[in-house]
Amino acid sequence: MSGAPHERVPVLEVESLSRSFGGVRAVDRVSFTLFSNELLAMIGPNGAGKTTCFNMVNGQLRPDAGAVRLNGRSILGLPPRSIWRLGVGRTFQITATFASMTVRENVQMALVSHYRRSRALWRPARDHYFDEAMALLERVGMDRQYDRACGVLAYGDLKRVELAVALANEPGLLLMDEPTAGMAPRERMELMQLTTGIVRERNIGVLFTEHDMDVVFAHADRIMVLDRGQLISEGTPMAVRSDRKVQEIYLGGSAVHDGGPA
């Protein structure tokens, strides 16, 4: 899976991103660049600052200092909905879908918002972007369950729906927080294979955090390792695997710095 991506356009540029919580530097001058057609994993022990870093990129949290640029344009201080408009799809650690809608309606909502039709008052929502929604569902393998309510879906299926929703606005960047959390091992690999395929065919850049090292080393093109808020290693899976500092963190005595979720 490693090897140079065939097209290297920078999608996301992060420069000296920092954020403190009451004197603790949760994220300390982290810089990286994500290219299109690339899966970049952000890993690190609990409390390393992955979630904080992630939430600053997606607009949920304001950094103390630093820059975040999407396709060369600063997105610092923009609310999540504006960042989405610029072509950033998201999936969540705990899936967030509309439970009272069917699978297809969930995707239709994203399309309705994308085409700015969310204030349309007359034609039924189920007639909007029907085929487009079905095409997306087919791509993630959920087309046969299109009419089921999201509230009753299996967890792995919900993750696929989220992926289809995230693809609705033809994003150049996908932010995936723990994409395989809560799934069975085989499901994990299937979902990541699906994601990788989509990324390749649509030339998307993916930034994801992940706890499962098998998933990370099997699917990431590049890996960043955070520890105590700092970026301590970055490179291909092969390079990161052999990095002494990384080995120290994961194999040395103090793998966990604090109890908070990462």
């Binding site: 504006s82 969540f92 879908t97 309606e105 969310s118 204030r119 349309a120």
Partner: peptide
């Protein structure tokens, strides 16, 4: 039944997801 009503329901079901699809 129109997209407007669905958007309202979307916000009720999951404000997080609604914001993440630009609503």
């Amino acid at each position: 039944y129109a997209p407007f009503g669905y958007t309202l329901r979307a916000g009720r079901d999951s404000p997080l997801r609604a914001a993440a699809i630009g609503i």
